[in-house]
Amino acid sequence: MKWIDYASASSVQEAVDLLKGGGARPLAGGTDLIVNLRIRRLDPDTVVDVKGIPELNEVSYDASKGLTLGAAVPCYKIYNNKAVAKAYPGLIDVASLIGGTQIQGRASIGGNLTNAAPSGDSIPVLIALGAIANIAGPNGTRQVAVEDFCTGPGKTVLKQGELLVSLSIPAPVKGSGAQYMRFIPRNEMDIAVAGVGVSVVLENGTFKSARISLASVAPTPLFVKAAGDALVGKPVNDASIAVAAGIARDAAKPITDMRGTIEYRKHLCEVLTRRGLNVAIERAKENK
């Protein structure tokens, strides 16, 4: 690894000041950043440790306002939080499958999002849940919907000096359920061949709304609006689900690589969307 300088920020403003000159990257859990420094995929002169900033460590849930999740909160603190675990089982799906136990001791959902890997496991479920990214920068704060956050492999809307502070996730409504389902050849410690985040709201045996998003099948996590929209007003049954799954399959734009062929990955998108919807529907039915 080349020489780097290390700075620790204790406030958002301090972090923004350290980042705005360029050549600096925020360090949260480091599970992607440190690897990327070592293989020189990233080449900053300075890393700015943001784990000392109160706003980035926030986990606050309110049944009416929803969840504010600091960008540096490690995965284990999410699934160990009983209120969050109960309200957002879809978020818990990803917090407990990113890496393994040790990785979950450091890795954060915010880091997973800003790393912007096409395979980032948390991103489809954040999109499905309608999460908003709260960004601070030299020109103040702004909010970006997570589906608009990633712009390419490893690329995001963050401009020089900007920092992801937290994620805001709307409160779950009655009859809602969400799920993240990925396909990996091993049972843990693997990169998704394909992944699907889904959320549904059910009402009187029909879909009131639905959001479906895919991982690992495009240069960025893919929000497939049409797949969710196709469910709205439709009865909760296999035929409706099959239509949405077919749209998800057709929307996927994977490449053939060591993780799978185009044909196989598109097929998986259909399977996972169907399976994911079925789990989300079960969760929604329990969420009275």
Binding site: R186, N187, E188, M189, I191
Partner: peptide, 16 residues
Amino acid sequence: MTNSSLLDYRMPTSLD
């Protein structure tokens, strides 16, 4: 070799 890491080479873990 495009999978030259212990993540992508996929030796069995205890969970497999």
